[in-house]
């Protein structure tokens, strides 16, 4: 199973579309967290809303982290495919692939941390105030 997924990740080509996945997931998670919290706080009591908010943000965070981790994993496997030596700056398919893979991997790392930072307040605050 894991081997199959690894081979699938190797077959996928890093592209600009893959590059924008982590920051897009981060943006959507950010938007969901703020909008959902605002709506729940407005509709429920200040303290009662926190259970719903924590559940919603937990689900959204797990989904977002899985997507970012998956795109990061694909980028990581792509960055390890044999090819030219560094630096990857020539206009060849191999260099382009390595560059996009490295950029995607870094963006996935940043997005992963940012999603966690967005979610943490929901587990520290105990009301909407």
């Amino acid at each position: 199973m894991i081997c199959k997924l690894h081979k699938l990740a190797q077959r996928l080509k890093s592209s600009l579309w893959m590059l924008v996945v982590p920051p897009t997931v981060w943006a959507l998670h950010f938007l969901f967290s703020y909008v959902y919290t605002a709506v729940r706080c407005a509709k429920s009591g200040s303290v009662e809303a926190i259970v719903d908010i924590r559940t919603g943000i937990t689900v959204a965070t797990v989904v977002a982290l899985l997507l970012v981790a998956a795109s990061g994993y694909v980028a990581w496997t792509q960055s390890r495919i044999d090819g030219d030596l560094r630096p990857y700056q020539d206009s060849t398919d191999e260099d382009r692939l390595h560059f996009l893979a490295a950029a995607t991997l870094l963006l996935a790392g940043l997005s992963f941390v940012a999603i966690l930072f967005t979610a943490i307040p929901a587990f520290i605050f105990e009301d909407c105030i």
Partner: peptide, 24 residues
């Protein structure tokens, strides 16, 4: 550039959020 700042910011974030909690 990556792990150090992330850990430091995480500690500061959790510390500051805990200080911002409203009184029960």
């Amino acid at each position: 550039g990556a792990l150090g700042p992330t850990l430091l910011l995480s500690v500061l974030l959790v510390f500051s959020l805990s200080k911002m909690r409203t009184l029960p």
